[in-house]
């Protein structure tokens, strides 16, 4: 579904990704883990054209989408949830969802999507007229994901969805991610919480210094070197 070949990207002069190859098959959850500064977030941003792509190719459903403008990427079926519970805090919950579907012209579809999202996240329906800043951290993260679902994505890019959340809330968010995937949405999830991410992912890529250091399935947890770096060597 998504094929990335020898991607080099960064910001203006500074190259952060030095040639990344990665693939996501339809229906997969792919986790990306790695230390701070290894280029995980930059990688997601480069797919969504939010940083500078210097060379390489991003192919989505046999179409070259490298450096495609954001609203066109949303049309193609890619949605992105940025790091850190990014909601429109001065807008109501419902307005946040409507803004998720900003590029959508079809009102019938918009109403249906809001209904679907309310079904998946019942608390959003209850709080639809509340301002988003009144929600808890975990609820805001859910709202950010729900906002992306308003765009009917085929591929969802999640940047550190568990950042700053309690373990209980983290579990809820990860359960939702699994549920969304079950409905056929492919997902790339970048995570600090490596163990959790590997557990829900079909395959995992480990980034180091802007390159893929290792990739594989759940067996990656048993890899000695990885164990030492990410799971405290136990």
């Amino acid at each position: 579904m998504l094929k990335i070949k020898n991607l080099k990207a960064g910001y203006e002069e500074q190259e952060i990704l030095h040639g990344v190859d990665l693939e996501v098959k339809a229906g997969e959850i792919v986790a990306i883990i790695g230390p701070n500064g290894s280029g995980k977030s930059t990688f997601l941003k480069s797919i969504f054209n939010l940083c500078d792509v210097f060379s390489g190719k991003i192919i989505f459903k046999d179409k070259n989408i490298t450096r495609m403008p954001t609203h066109e990427l949303i049309y193609e079926g890619i949605s992105y949830v940025p790091q850190g519970r990014q909601v429109f805090s001065d807008l109501t919950v419902k307005e946040n969802l409507e803004m998720g579907a900003f590029i959508m012209e079809n009102h019938e579809l918009l109403r249906r999507n809001i209904r679907d999202v309310f079904e998946k996240f019942p608390f959003l329906k209850e709080k639809q007229n509340d301002y988003a800043f009144t929600l808890s951290g975990g609820q805001q993260q859910m709202l950010a994901i729900a906002r992306a679902l308003m765009q009917n994505p085929e591929l969802l890019l999640l940047d550190e969805p568990s950042l700053g959340l309690s373990p209980k809330m983290t579990k809820e968010v990860f359960d939702k991610i699994k549920a969304i995937n079950k409905e056929g949405v492919s997902i790339i999830v970048v995570e600090q919480n490596a163990k959790k991410a590997v557990e829900i992912a079909h395959r995992t890529y480990i980034f180091e210094d802007g390159k893929v250091a290792l990739s594989g399935g759940k067996e990656i947890l048993k890899n000695k070197r990885i164990k030492n770096i990410y799971f405290g060597g136990r």
Partner: peptide, 18 residues
């Protein structure tokens, strides 16, 4: 609403295609 969204958080507004 889009104006309020940009006023609130320009980066997220860009992410949803505004």
């Amino acid at each position: 609403k889009a104006m309020r969204a940009v006023s609130d958080n320009k980066d997220v507004a860009e992410v949803v295609g505004i």
